[in-house]
Structure formats: structure tokens, C-alpha cells
Computed example of a mutant assay.
Amino acid sequence: MAWENQTFKSDFILRNLQSQPRPHLPFLSGLGIFTVAFAGNTAMVLLIYLDSQLHTPMYFLLSQLCLIDLMLICTTVPKMALHYLSGRKSISVAGCGTQIFFYVSLLGAECFLLVVMAYDRYVTICHPLRYPILISQKICGLMAASSWILGSFDGITEVAVALSFSYCGAREIPHFFCNVPALLTLSCTDTSTFERMIFISCIIMLLLPVAVIIASYTRVLLAVISMGSGECRCKAFPMCSSHLMVVGMYYGAAMFIYMRPTSDSSPTQDKMISAFYTFLIPTLNPLIHSLRNKEMTKNEGIREG
């Protein structure tokens, strides 16, 4: 009963923007970036959905990526803005668990989806004649659905274990939203086993996908180099470079924040990396892909050629 009283009957306190010297500046900056990210990802999803010429596996996967980013910014930013405008700092245990679930699930889904997108580009460049068989609409839909399911499983697991610990003291989370590494610093019990579990999970969800992506793009690079036509090379590089930029941003930040022991983490560094995930990546993804939009449209000719 004491465990239940400590864990479930007291709200957590979030260190919101009010703790900053000039809280209105990061709030207005974050709100502006949120608006750009929300508009950009929404526009990309609607464009791909409404334009029948974009109803291809490559663009379907891109729409899923934009949908994940759209949900990611809506998971944390509106709540943060509400707290700032109302002056409230508390968040219920249920609200904290909900934020953790969606945040972890969406990051996990994006992790697996980037692997699927790398596979799509590998088949496009290396096996163009077999593309309709290897990346059919049904197979593409199943791979995308698997990314969402695997990400949700990771979110459920982390929420269930994180909220099984007892939390006491000031219960003040050193973050602007509920985050598992920040939450563990408040635990009254030993969390080392859970930290090791997170580390192993990160190896599976980060290092293995990165290895698959590197292997795929190594084959793609060799195939592009062997292309006799310079025009084909010019078509292939833009299609792959946009995805590689997103992969570099996503996995680089993820490895930095999640593959470190909690004892070595810094609240300031965690906030910066989380802001990078929450604000910048969802903003940059549609910009990166839209800048390559003309080239990606022309890349459909690679499979025909």
C-alpha cells in the first residue's frame, strides 16, 4: 500500500519554462517551430493522400514518417504550452504515463520505419525489375504496420516498468515533459536492472537498424557507382541523400541520449536533445524531403529505365 501511495496518489512536478530567466523567449521560439512543423507535416500527409500520382510505396512510407512526426510534436508541445500559459507545473501519473507511452512508441515506430525506407531505396536502385514484387502495396502496408506495432510494444513495456517503481521526495522531474531517463532520477528504489534493459533495448532498436541501413546503402552506393549513365546517378543520389540526412539526425541523437547510463546524464543535455527530437527533427523532415520532391518524382524513371 505504501508503494501505491507514493507512486499513484501524488502528481509529478515538471520544470517548465518558468524556471528559465526569460521564459517567454523559448516559449515563443518553440511555438513558432511547432507551428512550422505542424503545418509542414500536415501538408505533406495531405499532399501524398490527395495526389493519386504519389500513391506509391515510397511516398506512402514518407507520409507515415510525417504522420509520426506530427503526432510526436502533439504529444509534448501542447501540454507544455498549456502549463506555461496556466502557470501549472504538475502532471498526473496517468498523464505522465500517457506522454511516455506515445513519446517512446512514436520514436520506436520511426526507428523501424527508417529501416523500411532504407530497404525501399535499396530495392529501387539494386533490384528495379523486382520492385513491384518485393515492395508491393500489401507488403509496404504490412512493413509500415509492423513499425507501429513494434514501437507501441516498446512504449507499453517502458511505461509498465517505469511506473512500477516508487517515487518519493520532491517528485520534481528535471524536464519539460515526462521522460523515462529523467523520471528514473526520482526513484527511491534501485533502477539499475531497468537501465540495463533500456540499454539492451537500445542496442536492438538502434544499433541493429543502423547496421541494416549501412549495409543497404553500401549496396546502393556500389550499384550507383557501377551505373554507366551519369543521369541515373544524378537521379539516385538525391533520393538517397534526403533519407540519409534524416537517419543521421535521428539515430545520432537517439544514441546520445538513450545509450548512456542515467548517472552520466545531464538535465541540460537531455533537454537539448529532447528539444531536438520534439521540435527540430519534425520540422526538418518535411523540409528535407520537399526540397528533394522534384528529384524524387523523376526517380520513378529509374525503375522504368
Rank of each mutant, 00 (worst) to 15 (best):
P26V: 00
P26E: 11
F27G: 03
F27W: 08
F27V: 15
G30H: 09
G30N: 04
L31M: 15
L31D: 14
G32N: 10
I33M: 10
F34Y: 14
T35D: 08
T35A: 10
T35P: 05
A37H: 12
A37G: 04
F38T: 03
F38I: 00
F38K: 04
F38N: 13
G40C: 01
G40E: 09
N41V: 05
N41M: 07
N41L: 05
T42P: 03
T42Q: 09
A43S: 11
M44D: 14
M44G: 06
V45Y: 08
V45K: 10
L46T: 01
Y49Q: 10
Y49D: 15
Y49I: 02
Y49S: 13
L50Y: 07
S52C: 06
S52A: 14
Q53G: 02
Q53P: 03
L54Q: 14
H55N: 10
T56I: 11
T56G: 06
T56H: 01
P57I: 03
P57H: 12
P57S: 14
P57M: 03
M58R: 08
M58E: 11
M58S: 13
M58F: 09
L61K: 14
L61R: 11
L61E: 05
L61P: 02
L61W: 04
S63D: 07
L65W: 02
L65P: 00
L65M: 12
L67R: 06
L67Q: 09
I68W: 00
I68A: 08
D69A: 05
D69H: 15
D69T: 13
D69Q: 07
L70F: 15
M71T: 08
L72R: 04
I73F: 02
T75Q: 09
T76C: 12
T76H: 12
T76S: 10
K79F: 08
K79A: 08
M80V: 11
A81H: 10
A81Q: 11
L82Y: 13
L82W: 14
Y84P: 12
Y84V: 02
L85K: 10
S86E: 07
G87Y: 07
G87I: 01
G87P: 13
R88M: 05
R88A: 01
K89N: 12
K89I: 01
S90A: 15
S90I: 08
I91V: 14
S92E: 08
S92M: 09
S92N: 07
V93Y: 02
V93F: 04
V93I: 06
V93D: 09
A94E: 01
A94N: 13
G95M: 04
G95P: 12
G95D: 12
G95L: 14
C96V: 03
C96R: 01
G97S: 10
G97D: 15
G97T: 00
G97K: 00
T98K: 06
Q99T: 08
I100P: 08
I100E: 05
Y103K: 01
Y103P: 09
S105P: 02
L106A: 02
L106T: 02
L106V: 03
L107Y: 03
L107R: 04
A109F: 03
A109Q: 01
E110G: 13
E110C: 04
E110V: 00
C111A: 12
C111K: 08
F112L: 14
F112R: 05
F112I: 04
L113H: 03
L113K: 00
L114I: 11
L114Y: 11
L114R: 15
L114T: 02
V115A: 06
V116Y: 06
V116R: 06
A118F: 11
Y119N: 09
